[in-house]
Design a protein around this nucleic acid. Structure first.
Lengths: 181, 181
DNA sequence: GTCTATATTCCGATAGAC
DNA sequence: GTCTATCGGAATATAGAC
């Protein structure tokens, strides 16, 4: 729709992934767009409105992925999920959930609610995939599908965080480990 | 040694776990100690000095744990590790690593270095435990010990983060899943 | 040695210009 | 409809009082 508006959201999304919601300011965004920081308030009156929009776009993107993957095999869908953040590695980005979750208690209520929605969507999809994939004898694991979904999601999320700290093979290593179920 | 000083570190540690390093201020601490915020600067000239001290105390505590646990069985040591943050759940705290890692790129260099040191110590210990425990036929897993250590550490770290967002059984669920190796 | 008054900078947000 | 000048407050930090 609007070019400035979508650029603001794109930059906010990058900033949340790289330095976090509390660490970035409207000035960080406005400088890159060569406007005054107060101009952002026209599109997003408060910072939390911008935060909500970023989470919503991530939810939409994940829903689109689910739709695009639904006719693939179980293992192929799992691999798509496990590799969907590969491009983040060289940029040292984390995923939105991994960025926002640790400072959850500092977030405004509308962002908290939106984040819960996103996490529930991801975990619901993953639990479903693991359950049906195991029924089809493509996956082997002893935990409940929901527990296994928790573990895979958590390990992957935190792999991106550890990549920031260690900058070595930790992400690829965890990813490979998670593929073998 | 000093009472005010150690109270400052204790409060900073709690604040980092609950809301994060970038979100807390010297005023948060000074108000609880009924002093002016600037008084903190006498003990810790800059906020990063306080941050470094908190990480150092965590490293020391972990080293003490390793020492205290070293004569226990492999599985018992793993359980100690997996349950060491149980008391955080009802407080909705995350561990220091999980709190600082996502905003790693915003941290001053001395904190980054100290955090790397802590993570390497934890992962080194866990890798060792898994390797020797598997050799002793107490653990069964197909990944390399280092990969398995990455996965367990990451899943546990992120379980605390997810507990903030979902407030349900996610932590206990992941913890139980990780115990069965 | 311990803490306070104060400076400086930067933040998110409002009111209003164009 | 889009953006700027400016405000009020909060953050870290310094200089100096006791």
């Amino acid at each position: 729709m609007n070019d400035t508006r979508s650029e603001i959201v794109r930059l906010a999304s990058e900033l949340i992934r790289s330095i976090g919601y509390n660490a970035f300011s409207y000035t960080d965004i406005s400088q890159k767009l060569h406007i005054k920081n107060a101009a952002i308030h026209y599109y997003f009156p408060s910072k939390s409105d911008l935060g909500v929009e970023v989470i919503k776009q991530n939810l939409e993107a994940f829903n689109n992925n689910m739709e695009a993957w639904k006719n693939l095999g179980y293992r192929e869908q799992l691999n798509k999920y496990l590799t969907m953040h590969d491009s983040f590695i060289k940029k040292n980005w984390v995923c939105i959930v991994g960025s926002l979750a640790p400072s959850y208690d500092t977030l405004p209520e509308n962002m908290q609610k939106e984040l819960q929605h996103l996490v529930n969507t991801i975990l619901g999809w993953l639990t479903d995939l693991l359950e049906t994939g195991r029924q089809a004898k493509e996956f082997t694991f002893t935990e409940s599908p929901r527990t296994k979904a928790f573990i895979i999601h958590s390990a992957l999320l935190s792999a991106l965080q550890m990549n920031k700290v260690l900058r070595d093979d930790v992400y690829k290593s965890i990813q490979q480990g998670l593929m073998n179920i």
